[in-house]
Every structure is written in structure tokens, then in C-alpha cells.
Amino acid sequence: MLGLLLLASCLWLGHGEVVKSFEECSEFFYAGTTPNDALNPKNPALICQRFKNTYHFATLYDRDNRIPVYSAYRYEPSNVKKPPEWWLVEPQLIDKNLNLKDMEWDKVLREKYGITLDKIKESQAVPDDYKDLTDLDRGHLCPSGHMNSKESKMATFTLTNIVPQYSSLNNGKWRTYEHQKMMKKTADCKSTYVVTGAVPGSTKVSGGRVNRPSYIWSAACCLGENSQPKDAWGAIAQNDKNRVEVISLKELEKKLTDLYGKTVTLFNNACPREQKSHP
């Protein structure tokens, strides 16, 4: 946590939604503890994802690769209808002087505020980057199906929460994990904290603008009746195969440590590293 805050203090990371630390939206991390700085990209942005004047989740964004490193949220699925796929962008990645704290549609930025598409594209991915991809989808890190309101579901449709994900995986085993496995594994949890991320890959799409991750991963920490962690687990998938491994948090952190070449810690130490339940 200290390393992340020190790194952020050395960089201008904006105000309001793009923040200097995750303190403004620490509620999305168990005990306010973020993943350690092993995951930090060279050019990060810390985003408290704000829509309709409310924070809905948190994202560490990689400005250079134009993909999120991870999104952190509380798992609160509901029967609220999935909203239309209206893709949003982050104004404060564009210009620190923009007094726009909420994510916004790029069309609004262009027509209402006179911001050119080229200017938006300098700082992040835009809808056109995902238009003509082959065998790749716009893959959510924080999925709309894990949110509990219309507004929070809409907030997940920001391109700072999206990576190019292998279509067969996104619509196959990863979807099964998100919507079926998670429901079973959290059945006895009073609340569950989730961090879902993407390991940058060696290739890019959309004319070299957007990195295609090599792996997609997710970690969960389950709290019991006393609001203390009772279980934790992880999932990881290569982003070119329709296969997901559900493993312990310890195993996931080890795999990410090998992939990043630095020791990775995803949750507060109170979250169990050995998996306790195997539904």
C-alpha cells in the first residue's frame, strides 16, 4: 500500500475521480488494503469509478497499454436488468483541468465540450478500438452482473474497465466462473471483496493502440457472520484458451508473482491464502 501511495505522489494523477490514492474509494478493498505495487505499470492512473455522482468500483489503469491492470469491487449481484451497452470514457484522463468528475460518453465530450476524438484517444481506448476485432470481445474486469443497481451496472461499461478478451473464453468458461461458480462459492458469505485483473501481453490490437492481455485473473475474499474473512480463492485463464483454473489465493498470488517477476499480494493478510471451501 505504501509503495502505491509513494508512486502516486510522484505523479500527477488528477483530482476527483482520477485520484492520488484509493483513499476516496477504499470501501472497495477489504480493510482498505489495495494490491501491492508489484502490479503497477510505468504510467498508471488510479480511478475511483464515478457515475451519476457516486463511486461504484475502483480501477488501476495502464495509460500506455490502454487497459486496466485491475478493477476492485464488492460482489453484490442482483436481478436488476442489464442496461444498454453505452460505452463510456474517463474525462479526467484527457485533461487535468476538465471539471468533469463522472465518466462520460465520448459523443458528449465531443459535442458539448468540444474535445476532439484524437484528444480522447491520446489517453485511453475509445469504442472504435474494439469495433473490428477478430475473436476478441470487450471483456469486463468488473462485470455488470456483479453489481446491484442500474447505475452501478451502467458504470461498468467504461472502457477503463475493459480489455480485449478471447471471445470463446469471455462467452464460455469465464462467464461460467463469473455467474455460476461465484454464486456457489459465495453462498455462505455475508459480503465478498473481489479484485479482477489482466496481465499485459506481448501483442497489441487496433493498430498497436491497445494491449491484448496474456492472462485474465480474479481473486475473492469472503467475509462471514462476524465480518471477518472466512475464505478466499482465485481464478486464472490464458487469454487464448477457453479454460479457467479455480485455485487458492496463495496459488494465484504465486502465479502472478511468476508472471510479473515481483512478489504479488492481492488482499489484506487476514484473507486466507489456503482455500477452505470447494463447492
Rank of each mutant, 00 (worst) to 15 (best):
L4E: 12
L7T: 11
L11Y: 01
W12C: 01
G16R: 13
K20N: 15
S21A: 15
E24D: 12
C25L: 06
E27Q: 02
E27Y: 00
Y30H: 06
A31C: 07
G32R: 04
P35Y: 03
L39V: 13
N40Y: 03
P44R: 05
I47L: 13
F51H: 12
N53E: 08
N53Y: 01
H56D: 04
T59I: 13
L60G: 08
L60V: 14
N65A: 13
S71I: 00
Y75L: 10
Y75I: 02
E76G: 00
S78W: 06
K81Q: 12
P84L: 03
E85N: 09
V89I: 15
E90R: 09
Q92L: 13
L93N: 02
L98M: 14
L100W: 10
D102F: 02
D106E: 10
D106T: 02
K107E: 14
V108I: 11
R110D: 09
E111Q: 14
E111G: 08
T116D: 15
D118C: 01
K121R: 15
D132L: 09
L133T: 08
D135N: 15
R138W: 05
M147Y: 04
S149M: 07
K150A: 11
E151C: 00
S152D: 12
M154K: 10
A155G: 02
T158K: 03
T158E: 04
N161M: 04
N161I: 05
V163W: 04
P164D: 02
Q165C: 10
Q165P: 11
S168R: 07
N171P: 00
N171S: 11
K173F: 02
R175H: 01
T176K: 12
T176W: 11
A187D: 14
C189E: 03
K190F: 10
K190I: 11
Y193K: 05
V194H: 03
V199F: 05
V199K: 08
P200E: 02
S206R: 09
G208S: 07
G208R: 03
V210F: 01
Y215V: 07
S218L: 01
S218G: 15
A219N: 06
Q228G: 10
W233K: 02
Q238R: 15
E245S: 15
I247R: 06
S248C: 01
S248V: 04
K250R: 14
T257M: 04
L259V: 04
L266D: 07
N268W: 10
N269M: 07
A270G: 05
R273Y: 09
Q275C: 02
